[in-house]
Amino acid sequence: MNILEVKDLDMSYKTIDGDVEAVKKVSFTVKEGESFGIVGESGCGKTSVAMSLLQLQADNGKITNGEIIFDGKNIVGLSESQLREVRWSGISIVFQGAMNSWNPVVKIGEQIREAMREHYPDKTKEENTKKIIELFDIVGLDSSIIDRFPHELSGGMKQRAVIALALSCDPKLIIADEPTTALDVVIQDQILKEIRKVQEVLGLSLIYISHDIAVIAEMTDNMAVMYAGSIVEMGKTDKVFSNPKHAYTKMLLESTPSIVGPKKKLRSLDGEPPSLINTDSYCSFSYRCPSPDDNCRNRNIEMELTKIDSEHYADKCCINCG
């Protein structure tokens, strides 16, 4: 069963220069217990997708079109109080930069309890504390952390505590938005294992957002590649990696070193991502396409995902370019 279905989601930010279309016609589904990855470069709209799911985008951001069906219910256009119920107990989020996710003047335990109080108003303090200790146990934290202030914790501990916070209200879906940014590789690895473990133990659905394609390969069952606000390739993670169809995905893979196989020169992509102000519906990658054909160069083909096989889709234009 699908826990989350996103259909034709459009989201744009109003700015002085015009509307920035950060998310364009994004559709994907996340099944129960599945982990879904979204990969793409900075500014491609990954975080905007995550924020739209909880409708936490900045004040100037607005969902202009599309549906987000969470647990069988469309949550676009719900009132603030209805959204508050979905937030955290339905969908919770692990933000990028755990350093700043904590209020510096409130104890960790109190900040977790605060969320629980909102969603389970009848529980006592002891019950809540017991649950926090259990969660801390899962993510590998000592129970004494409850009475600590955020600044007394190391970066890795804070991130673990953030994961415990995300689990505190029994969400059905967790969004992990680059949860390992600003951590060193050893801690990164530990945190990733922790997330993986939690997801398997509790049978949660996970949306993992990252710019690091290697992490996506390790963490996810299905994945989507985003470029300039649209999904350009989507499918089973193995299939996307073994048989990338979109030129951008190929470039992403070739820009990452591999420890197995013959030594290959890493490639980088020339040019910059396009401006997202007043875009059209034609292939957004054509300006940077390494081997464009005539259709691509003249921008004749509208963006649309086409089926390659039952679990693999890619953008129409770029399949032809090769």
Partner: peptide, 24 residues
Amino acid sequence: DFILTARAKGLSQRRIRDRHAARN
């Protein structure tokens, strides 16, 4: 960022304002 976290937690506007923003 912690204001965003507080909003994501589903806290009421008033609580975010008083407890998180004003307190700091």
